[in-house]
């Protein structure tokens, strides 16, 4: 009987597949929030398995800040074509042009917070009742409190102190018109689990995760990539370095680390001895101790 025991990666996989199937059964119009990062790629891979031999029964939604890594967009388009899936793009630039939001001012201005409006507008316009995300509870302290099925009111807001209790494997996705859910199938995965699984399954990921030569500038303790959006300070210079990224966000705020890990095997080995969290290089989380909680309450991913 002892052979009837799953290892932890298989158990996490089984749990995520179960959650994705519950989404399909409980919602009318779900989407996978796709950023081109490894976590949303992982969710997509799990969705393929959950519904095989059917196509993934969800559309994909990308909130495009306009500040992308070109590699991410190329990867996105190729994957969507392979899956023969529908892609909905919410454009932050359009939100700006329509006067729905305005650009932040100052040296450290980013479009990170502006995405909230674009995301919520896209959810409303497309009558999305469930947005599936690659958020993980180990990423950040506010996310540690997230449910698998996380309710959003008709303003798209999260009320962390009044969440529905979630027991056993029973998920309550009941909601009123205009409300939606965020669902996180890989809630219980850690960064290490994600990498181990990507390696085991040999899942294709953007080359940005592997070490490569790149023009970068040293800012806020990490290597920020040179791009058309980057404004240099007087004391900053662009250098050529061999770097890779642990997470992918906007090109303006995602810092890389110096690394020689140019294969998945080397990345997994490197991550296993990392002494900093992966979001440590994301300046969006560094704004205050509760930066993530504050954004999530408003409707952030």
């Amino acid at each position: 009987m002892s052979s009837h025991s799953l290892n932890y990666l298989d158990e996490l996989e089984a749990e995520a597949i179960y959650v994705l199937r519950e989404v399909h059964a409980q919602f009318q119009n779900p989407v996978i929030l796709f950023s081109g990062g490894k976590d949303s790629i992982l969710v997509t891979h799990l969705a393929k398995k959950a519904f095989y031999p059917c196509k993934i029964p969800f559309a994909f939604m990308h909130v495009d800040t306009g500040h992308n890594f070109p590699e991410t967009i190329a990867f996105r388009d190729q994957l969507i074509a392979e899956l023969d899936a529908e892609l909905i793009v919410g454009s932050v630039q359009e939100s700006i042009d329509q006067g729905r939001v305005s650009e932040e001012k100052g040296k450290h201005a980013t479009r990170n917070a502006l995405q909230i409006t674009t995301l919520l507008d896209a959810i409303e316009e497309n009558r999305i009742d469930c947005a599936i995300g690659g958020g993980r509870r180990d990423e950040e302290k506010a996310r540690a409190k997230e449910r698998f099925f996380s309710h959003r009111d008709d303003f798209g807001q999260w009320d962390p102190k009044n969440q529905r209790p979630e027991l056993w494997h029973i998920f309550n996705g009941q909601h009123f018109e205009g409300e939606h859910f965020r669902v996180f199938p890989i809630s219980n995965w850690t960064e290490m689990d994600v990498w181990n699984y990507i390696k085991r399954e040999n899942i294709a990921i953007p080359s940005l995760y592997l070490a490569h030569e790149r023009e970068v500038v040293w800012r806020n303790d990490s290597w920020i990539p040179a791009s058309e959006f980057l404004k240099l300070d007087e004391n900053e210079t662009i250098e050529q370095r061999k770097i890779r990224f642990r997470t992918l966000g906007d090109i303006t705020i995602t810092g890389g680390i110096e690394s020689d890990s140019d294969t998945l095997e080397k990345v997994v080995a490197e991550v296993s001895v990392m002494r900093h969290t992966e979001r440590g290089n994301r300046s969006d989380d560094k704004r205050s101790e509760t930066a993530m909680e504050d954004r999530k309450k408003q409707g952030y991913f």
């Binding site: 509870r137 506010a142 102190k161 219980n188």
Partner: peptide, 22 residues
């Protein structure tokens, strides 16, 4: 182990929080 703003401020745990280690 404190996550939410109120928990940090008041030094109490309000909701179930999930932690991971290997």
């Amino acid at each position: 182990t404190d996550g939410l703003r109120d928990e940090r401020e008041q030094g109490i745990t309000i909701d179930v929080a999930y932690r991971y280690f290997t």
